[in-house]
């Protein structure tokens, strides 16, 4: 299954509640930031083309909350983040680890708010802590 960045956004669960987390301009292009949403750490990324992605901040390989500090890039065209700890690369759209496809990060719906200058994240019910 291949998803475009837009498709990720449309996967919004109906039960989700959107959280305003920061201004779009707060996000450095091609860098991440971490948001604390209902007890969950969400890694937010703004890629080169301006698209937004949100995955769990927890690096499953090291157990540390660090993925928002990884380097962004592409692999075969897919937008990626590399864990700053042991450098595994994850597909930002699906959360799948491209170095070990048995592992996937939880992904979160993310969008620009009504005015376009804010960033909003939603958690599925089971993702709330």
């Amino acid at each position: 299954m291949t998803l475009s960045p837009d498709a990720t956004i449309t996967r919004t669960p109906s039960a989700a509640r959107w959280h305003d987390v920061c201004a779009y301009a707060d996000l450095t292009p091609e860098r991440g930031a971490c948001a604390f949403v209902e007890g969950t750490q969400v890694a937010l990324f703004r890629t080169h083309d301006g698209a937004l992605h949100a995955v769990a901040n927890l690096d499953p390989f090291s157990g540390a909350q660090v993925l928002s500090r990884g380097i962004l890039g592409t692999r075969d065209g897919a937008p990626t983040v590399a864990s700053p700890m042991y450098k595994q690369v994850f597909d930002l759209r699906t959360g799948v680890c491209l170095d070990d496809p048995r592992v996937a990060l939880p992904t979160f719906p993310v969008r620009r708010g009504a005015g376009g200058d804010r960033v909003e994240v939603a958690l599925a019910h089971e993702q709330r802590q």
Partner: peptide, 21 residues
């Protein structure tokens, strides 16, 4: 500027990342 986005986490925070973040 743009150089910031190229840096590994250590250079990005001007410190050395340890195992617990």
């Amino acid at each position: 500027g743009e150089q910031a986005a190229l840096q590994d986490t250590n250079d990005h925070f001007l410190a050395n990342l340890q195992k617990n973040g």
